[in-house]
């Protein structure tokens, strides 16, 4: 963004002329090219664009990803095949992109479902009376007590493998943290004076929920959703890698990496390196976007 740099005031010195007298500025933070707000917006836009691009190219390349070319197998990365080719002559770039688009789809569905579950259960715990609270808190403790991967193996065993199996499994395992957060937020809001005033003024519980509680938890929910997404993708890849997720014929990063294990000792490092890097880039971008969004939205962190 060149115009941004140009529009910055030229004097970032420690004093400015204002009229005739010289005012010393005691606190002069270094001027930044992008402040946090702009940075967040840029990261979010880039992340969303990348998401759209990955899903689109992944869909378009689905044919190319499956296409085998036995005259061009086991090729190291070159200009023609940026990520190299595998033992069946499939282009690894096309395969990685197609795999990422599947991952993104699973991630979106799972993170969305998980966030809705967290909102419902967190709200029910906070507002549903002592019994509901105890039951849901127990459920959260229980879910957090079993390691995610073990729970995912169990769920995949229970409902079968494949696209929907993974999506449901990841959705069912990721809500507890967010639910706990939402419960705490709502409890805090419920005790606040503005809700007490609204109640005294005769507002109905539904109106209070819609006008006061929902706006109160919405930022947390949004941030939670954005942060759940990369997590969901990572767990999808992990469970697919172990053999419990997507079926082998579907292009997926987990499948690519697990298949690459048989070829690593033959020195075909590109089979594992690049698809993994593509996954990390996607996850990293969304993780940063979510964290920046939190700093921006969360009043407790607005001073950072």
């Amino acid at each position: 963004m060149p115009d941004l740099a140009a529009s910055r005031p030229a004097h970032s010195a420690h004093s400015v002329h204002r009229g005739t007298d010289l005012l010393p500025i005691l606190h002069a933070p270094r001027a930044r090219l992008l402040n946090n707000r702009r940075q967040t917006v840029v990261v979010l836009v880039v992340a969303l664009l990348l998401l759209a691009a990955v899903v689109l190219t992944g869909r378009l390349l689905d044919g190319a990803a499956q296409q085998t070319d036995f005259t061009a197998k086991n090729l190291a990365p070159s200009l023609q095949h940026l990520f190299g080719t595998d033992w069946m002559g499939r282009d690894m770039l096309a395969r990685s992109l197609a795999g990422l688009s599947t991952s993104v789809l699973v991630g979106l569905l799972a993170a969305g479902t998980s966030a809705v579950l967290a909102l419902l259960l967190g709200t029910a715990a906070a507002l549903g009376g002592k019994k509901a609270d105890t039951a849901i808190t127990w459920l959260i403790d229980l879910m957090m007590g079993i390691p995610h991967i073990v729970l995912l193996i169990l769920i995949s065993f229970a409902i079968g493998r494949g696209f929907w199996g993974v999506t449901i499994g990841v959705a069912l395992t990721h809500w507890p943290n967010l639910a706990r957060l939402i419960r705490a937020e709502i409890l805090q809001c419920k005790e606040s004076s503005f809700v007490a005033v609204a109640r005294k003024l005769g507002r109905s519980p539904v109106r209070i929920a819609l006008d006061h509680l929902l706006p109160y938890v919405f930022p947390q929910l949004l941030v939670g959703l954005v942060l759940l997404f990369p997590h969901a993708i990572l767990h999808e890849a992990a469970i697919t890698f172990l053999g419990f997720g997507l079926p082998p014929e579907q292009p997926a990063i987990g499948i690519i990496l697990s298949e690459s294990m048989s070829y690593l000792s033959a020195g075909m490092w590109w089979l594992a390196l690049f698809p993994g890097l593509a996954l990390i880039a996607t996850v990293f971008l969304f993780d940063r976007a979510g964290s920046n969004l939190r700093t921006l939205i969360d009043p407790h962190r607005s001073q950072e």
């Binding site: 890849a237 990496l257 490092w269 993994g276 990390i280 990293f284």
Partner: peptide, 22 residues
């Protein structure tokens, strides 16, 4: 730390396997 939080454990294991073992 941020980068590591986005890295799948099994991928890192694969990379270590390539570099240190192969």
């Amino acid at each position: 730390c941020f980068l590591l939080a986005s890295t799948p454990t099994f991928w890192l294991a694969l990379v270590f396997l390539i570099v240190f073992a192969v």
